[in-house]
Deep mutational scan, measured.
Amino acid sequence: NQASVVANQLIPINTALTLVAMRSEVVTPVGIPAEDIPRLVSMQVNRAVPLGTTLMPDMVKGYA
Rank of each mutant, 00 (worst) to 15 (best):
N1C: 14
N1D: 15
Q2L: 13
Q2M: 12
Q2T: 12
Q2W: 13
Q2Y: 15
Q2K: 11
Q2R: 10
A3F: 13
A3Q: 09
A3K: 09
S4R: 03
S4K: 01
S4E: 01
S4D: 00
S4G: 04
V5W: 04
V6W: 04
V6K: 00
V6E: 01
V6L: 06
A7I: 06
A7T: 10
A7V: 09
A7M: 06
A7F: 03
N8E: 05
N8Y: 05
N8D: 08
N8H: 06
Q9C: 11
Q9M: 14
Q9E: 13
Q9V: 13
Q9A: 13
L10I: 10
L10S: 13
L10R: 10
L10E: 14
L10A: 14
L10M: 13
I11A: 02
I11P: 02
I11G: 04
I11K: 00
I11W: 02
P12M: 08
P12T: 08
P12C: 07
P12F: 06
I13W: 09
I13Y: 13
I13G: 09
I13M: 12
N14V: 05
N14R: 07
N14L: 07
T15P: 02
T15V: 09
T15Y: 13
T15F: 15
T15C: 11
A16W: 13
A16Q: 14
A16R: 12
A16I: 14
L17K: 00
L17I: 10
L17S: 01
L17Y: 00
T18F: 05
T18W: 04
T18K: 09
L19E: 07
L19A: 07
L19S: 06
L19Y: 13
L19C: 08
L19T: 06
V20I: 13
V20E: 14
V20W: 15
A21Q: 12
M22E: 01
M22L: 12
M22Y: 04
M22V: 06
M22D: 00
R23Y: 05
R23F: 05
S24Y: 08
S24K: 13
S24V: 12
E25W: 09
E25I: 06
E25G: 09
E25F: 07
E25T: 07
V26Q: 09
V26R: 07
V27D: 03
V27N: 03
V27A: 05
V27W: 04
V27Y: 03
T28E: 15
T28L: 10
T28W: 10
P29E: 05
P29F: 05
P29M: 04
P29A: 03
V30E: 11
V30A: 12
G31N: 02
G31T: 03
G31Y: 05
G31V: 02
G31C: 04
G31F: 04
G31K: 03
I32F: 02
I32G: 01
I32T: 01
P33T: 07
P33W: 08
P33I: 06
A34P: 05
A34R: 04
E35Y: 11
E35P: 06
E35H: 11
E35I: 12
E35C: 09
E35V: 13
E35D: 13
D36H: 14
D36C: 14
D36L: 11
I37Y: 03
I37K: 03
P38H: 11
P38K: 11
P38C: 15
R39K: 14
R39I: 13
R39W: 11
R39A: 08
R39L: 13
R39M: 14
R39Y: 15
L40I: 12
L40F: 01
L40K: 00
V41Y: 00
V41S: 03
V41G: 03
S42L: 09
S42C: 14
S42G: 15
S42E: 08
S42F: 09
M43I: 04
M43Q: 06
M43G: 00
M43A: 06
M43L: 12
M43P: 00
V45Y: 00
V45E: 01
V45G: 02
N46E: 07
N46F: 04
R47H: 06
R47G: 05
R47C: 09
A48V: 14
A48D: 15
A48H: 14
A48Q: 14
A48S: 14
V49L: 08
V49H: 03
V49S: 02
V49Y: 04
V49M: 02
V49W: 04
P50F: 11
P50I: 07
P50N: 08
L51W: 11
L51N: 11
L51F: 14
G52L: 05
G52E: 04
G52R: 01
T53P: 01
T53F: 15
T53D: 09
T53A: 13
T53R: 10
T54F: 03
T54V: 10
L55R: 03
L55P: 02
L55N: 03
M56F: 11
M56D: 04
M56W: 04
P57A: 11
P57Y: 10
P57R: 08
D58L: 08
D58P: 06
D58M: 10
D58G: 10
M59K: 00
M59W: 10
M59I: 04
M59R: 01
M59V: 06
V60D: 02
V60F: 03
K61P: 08
K61D: 10
K61S: 10
K61N: 10
K61C: 15
G62I: 04
G62A: 08
G62R: 06
G62Q: 08
G62K: 07
G62D: 10
G62W: 08
Y63N: 03
Y63V: 02
Y63A: 02
A64W: 08
A64N: 14
A64H: 15
